[in-house]
Amino acid sequence: MLANFLIGLREGLEAALVVGILVAYLVRTDRRALLRQVWFGVGLAAGVSIGVGALLTLGPQGLSFEAQEIIGGVLSIAAVGLITWMIFWMGKTARYLKGNLENALENAIAVGKGAIIAMALLAVGREGLETALFLWAGITSAGSSLAPIAGASLGIATAVALGWLIFKGAVRLNLRVFFQWTGVFLIIVAGGVLAYGIHDLQEAGVLPGLDNLAFDASAAVPPGSVHGTILKGVFNFSAQTTVLQAVAWFAYVVPVMWLFVRMAFHSGPPAPRSSQVPSQAPSQVPATEPQRDLAAADA
């Protein structure tokens, strides 16, 4: 039961956190109308995954191993692109909010609409097929025991609950701190998704170097343990990381982090450090601070 719970938790955690942050962002910037797009993307990804999973499990055709790995790898790398875009989009929108540029803000929303669906779709769909195949295997084994499917479902439910908690926490942060730290967090998450995608493509034989390990920490971080599950679920930390994965992780995280920190931490007054700082950090042009967009943390 515990092992199945941990698989469900791991598969659902990252998607739940990314969607939680996306929803928090939309609520904070008073764009609740766009939540419909989020739930549409989430629903579509879940529905397609479960449907395709059912076809592959119960139908005459299964998915070849290579195909499944290539789907996982390509979707992961596409997800990295969208998460990166989301990070800088959030940062950029913060600037528009500060400058009270209504026109530009409207454009930013128009840009966001389709991409928000894609964002939610990929965040959930990336691991969706593997999760659906795992769940269908649990359902087809339910004849002998309900424990596996119950454990897996509880794990996914726990991931969703943690995504909700992240949302509740994020709407309490002040806007500047929210943009800064969710950005930093999402960059680490995206680096892990990239490394995961690379590993899938290595397993499929599309990329070389599957056995060329950068390090092996499986003694300290067993994949089946609770801390291994959380590290894997949130940051896609792999105890046995290949050299190519490590290189890709650093090649992504270092420049993106540098660009983001320069943008979000250095383009204004220093970040507030303690709780003594007022709830809204002073802007470079305080007189033009828009009131309507600083959504109250009342959700």
């Binding site: 199945n4 299964g62 087809t140 084994s141 599957l210």
Partner: peptide, 20 residues
């Protein structure tokens, strides 16, 4: 012993999964 022909991950306790 290194080139993967096929594999299945996430076989939880009590679960049966297929590798074709």
């Amino acid at each position: 012993g290194t080139t993967i022909i096929a594999e299945v991950e996430n076989v939880g306790p009590g679960i049966t999964r297929q590798v074709v």
